[in-house]
Design a protein around this nucleic acid. Structure first.
Length: 421
RNA sequence: GUGGGCGUAGCUCAAUUGGUCAGAGCGCUGGACUGUGGCUCCAGAGGUUGGGGGUUCAAUUCCCCUCGCUCACCCCA
């Protein structure tokens, strides 16, 4: 019988990699705080309805990507495919609409989508999500975009492209839809098969088609921006003005159509040139009707999510720093088996002083212990043998310079603390 | 769901037109006058070549099936 492997599309984050994750979270947490966002922890599964109604029945996510199951009492539950719906649900359920507006929240954790895995795409993947709920001020859109850029900036990422669009609202979207259909109807038979299928269901997506012939055909098609109602148009202008004011670089992509139904007005993505086909490192926008679609009062909101795997992939590609590698400071070695017990005492003395320390438990020779000390990345080796035991001292060797000296056991931790500072 | 590429030691890869006990580097373990690592040298462990079937005197190499990985389409983080 062969060993049981992890299911397709999920993976283990091993120590060689996990410290990089810690770094990304630490930096993100700091930026979130700097922008006034506060962290929440949300459940990994929700009522299926939250997503089918919130994200949209006809979206790919809901139609074919959800991990849905029945619990033991027959409720239909779904492993969250994204975080915005849960965030808004939590906002409503916890009556945050009665507090300061907007509520600025962030959260991080695994998301689940049933898709064929490929580079930068997994069935369980991590997102860091930021939402500002309860304000329709265009400057909140600006803040959301700038927040994502600041995160990437502080992580040391470069070569990113920010694309912004406005997808309108329930007033202007139908106008655009009709204009688009009128434009495409005469050329319907020239579109690719999938686009023909999208004509009735979701013609907006035709603009997003990568097929060159469809691209050419839709080149002169009416875009969302040209059909915006006065309110959306003004909002978009003020978002662009705000971005200019703070000196954020971005470009307008009037073909940007996000796959989730809840987006209104502002939609944006941050693209990395160092990923494969899945090049979106961040996606977000405004969703003024999401709260209503899940049964709440009308509540505007803006937010975005970034994919942690994709961030790390891009950082590795660009040779970004992940901070210092987590090594121990001191490795205790004993010269012969009879010194082991005393070495253990020394080890715990060091650890209890808050210094990272370790020793070998596999019965290695003295020489091999030293080898292990070098391999551990420790800065100092602490040698304990008969001589040290009888004199009440310990030999400290600097593993970088090779120099060593003996110090009294009484001052060992003080000595190490001073050296490690 | 569809298509391409790939599955040989822990890792990265070799193995002539199918042909002797499937190799190397790195890593791992041990050692180089027994209380000192990183460099060097020596030795060792580790593979039913993803699994199953077929063709053949002979298969890592050819064919089929299956599982898995990977990249891409769709869509997105």
């Amino acid at each position: 019988m062969s060993i049981i492997r992890a299911p397709r599309g999920v993976r283990d984050i091993l120590p060689e990699e996990s410290w990089k994750w810690e770094y990304v979270f630490a930096v993100t947490r700091k930026v979130a705080g700097d922008f006034g966002y506060r962290e929440v922890h949300l459940p990994v599964f929700e009522h299926t309805e939250l997503f089918s109604r919130g994200v949209g029945e006809t979206t790919d996510v809901v139609e074919k990507e959800m991990y849905t199951f029945e619990d033991r009492s027959g409720r239909s539950l779904t492993l969250r495919p994204e975080l915005s719906a849960s965030m808004v649900r939590s906002y409503l359920e916890n009556r945050m609409d009665k507090q300061h507006q907007p509520a600025k929240l962030w959260s991080a954790g695994p998301m689940f989508r049933y898709e064929r895995p490929q580079k930068g795409r997994y069935r369980q993947f991590w997102q860091i999500d930021f939402e500002a709920i309860g304000s329709q001020d265009p400057y909140v859109d600006v803040e959301s975009i700038e927040l994502s850029l600041e995160v990437f900036r502080r992580l040391g990422l470069s070569n990113l492209e920010v694309v912004v669009n406005s997808v309108g609202c329930p007033v202007c979207r139908p106008v655009h839809k009709n204009a688009l259909q009128d434009f495409l109807r005469p050329r319907l038979d020239q579109l690719c098969e999938t686009c023909q299928g999208r004509f009735d269901r979701n013609p907006l997506r035709i603009l997003d088609c990568k097929n060159p012939s469809c691209r050419a055909l839709t080149d002169k098609a009416p875009d969302t921006i040209s059909c915006l109602c006065d309110e959306c148009s003004e909002h978009f202008d003020r978002v662009k003005g705000g971005l200019n004011r703070i000196g954020a670089s971005y470009s307008i992509d009037n073909r940007l159509v996000r796959g989730l139904d809840y987006y209104t007005k502002t939609a944006y993505e941050v693209l990395s040139g160092d990923l494969g086909a899945q090049n979106a490192v961040c996606g977000g926008g405004r969703y003024d009707n999401l709260a209503e679609s899940i049964g709440g009062p009308h509540t505007p909101g803006v937010g975005f999510a970034t994919g942690v795997e994709r961030i790390i992939l891009t950082m590795e590609q660009q040779g970004c720093s992940f901070g210092k590698t987590p090594n121990i400071d001191v490795f205790v070695v004993f010269t012969n088996p009879s010194s082991k017990d005393e070495a253990v005492s020394v080890l715990y003395g060091i650890r209890r002083a808050g210094i990272a320390a370790d020793m070998d438990y596999t019965g290695k020779s003295f020489k091999a212990q030293f080898k292990a000390a070098g391999g551990s990345g420790a800065l100092y080796a602490c040698v304990i043998g008969p001589e040290e035991i009888s004199s009440g001292r310990a030999t400290i060797k600097d593993l970088v310079s090779g120099e060593q000296e003996t110090v009294s056991r009484d001052v060992l931790t003080v000595f190490l603390e001073a050296r490690l500072r």
